[in-house]
Write a protein that binds this DNA or RNA. Sequence first.
DNA 1: CACGAAACGAGAGCACTGCTCTCTCAACTC
DNA 2: GAGTTGAGAGAGCAGTGCTCTCGTTTCGTG
Lengths: 230, 230
Amino acid sequence: MNTAQGARARARIEVTAAIKDEARRQLAAEGAAKLSLRAVARELGMVSSALYRYFPSRDELLTALIIDAYDSLGESAERAHEAAAGAEPLDRWVTVCEAVRGWSLDHPHEYALIYGSPVPGYTAPQTTVPPAARVGLLLIGVVRDAHHTPGGLRTLPPLPEELRPEADRIAADLAPDLPPEAVTALVAAWSQLYGLVGFELFGQFNRVVEARAPFFRHAVRQLGWGVGLR
Amino acid sequence: MNTAQGARARARIEVTAAIKDEARRQLAAEGAAKLSLRAVARELGMVSSALYRYFPSRDELLTALIIDAYDSLGESAERAHEAAAGAEPLDRWVTVCEAVRGWSLDHPHEYALIYGSPVPGYTAPQTTVPPAARVGLLLIGVVRDAHHTPGGLRTLPPLPEELRPEADRIAADLAPDLPPEAVTALVAAWSQLYGLVGFELFGQFNRVVEARAPFFRHAVRQLGWGVGLR
DNA sequence: CACGAAACGAGAGCACTGCTCTCTCAACTC
DNA sequence: GAGTTGAGAGAGCAGTGCTCTCGTTTCGTG
């Protein structure tokens, strides 16, 4: 049904893609704040106003790039996970984390776009939620696999009283089959993973950590251990 | 010697402060990207070009704000630490972390300025390093105190072979009196703290974590436990 | 004290930005 | 084939960072 679309519709798809490609190029080269609609249009041989036929505003273009970035990151992580299919859960956990780190080092500006400060004045629409969840779901999957495997998860220390209801709620939302202690630890570890990546990427580790890959590997292994993997 | 400075010099100090204050106001209101030199000048009743007598560029203004932000955060954390002087190390650790979170929630745009994506194309000069280190030094201090206290630190799991030299180097740089396992865990925990804060601040926890304070408290307590505190 | 240097503020101007509006022309629909 | 819709061009608006020039004020020094 798509193949014999009108010439108009096909052109629209192509131009839209070309705009995103060029925008991504500029994003990679200069960062989000220097992404200029006019420059994109110029590079594509069009005039800036024509671009508004495809994206109603600069923010909408950025949203499109954000979604693509989440998907690109998610796909990287999922591929790495599949490639490690046979391994121990803890090793798969480390593999996924390293894929996140690798993608981030390869796409620093796109990382900044999705996990750095949200572009000021800009709040991401709901559309971005599912792609954004991919890495998280992957990590949940690793822990769930471990849980349903002989040996299972370590027993984690009990949650403090004040956190029990919240932990039950989070667990019910994300992974009802896992113990609340593990799900809570998982959410924390998920965010902490991005602390590690962000600090490396944004220079906070400069003159502090030199051998970044081994450091990262060790840190995320500890993180995995902390959610109950062995 | 400062009191009888020339009228010119005193005026310069005042105007410089006024510029920073107004810039901070705009930063808090709108975020870094919408901080406009012209708007600052306008608000102060000067013309934009006059502002360049005080800051050679917008980036330099931002740098000044970054340093102030680091200092403001550091001071918050230090004050909280002092207020908890008598407590157990682990409790002091949690207190410092909560002070970081509190300051960040109160100053989201300043947090974004220093720990979010670096303003694109911009790399912070060396001047920012000492203020940026304050929170880190505080955390090191807590762990060091614990180490030199009866009971001391937990014995941490041994480091992997590949990380030993790096861990020794980091420990020698930051805290030669602490075991390398602890210093390595400390650096990781330091970055992970900002993962937790950043995710809360930038909306990644929306519709996932609701009771943020208890969640955070628990997570950083685990973090402290992970560096050897008990 | 007076004079020249330095600091300061104002204003005009440049090149750039996101975005809007109007106009024309080609493609599609009925 | 006529009418509707979508695409691109161009001009224009308000805003940005930054530079340059030009009087004025202040200051250190001869």
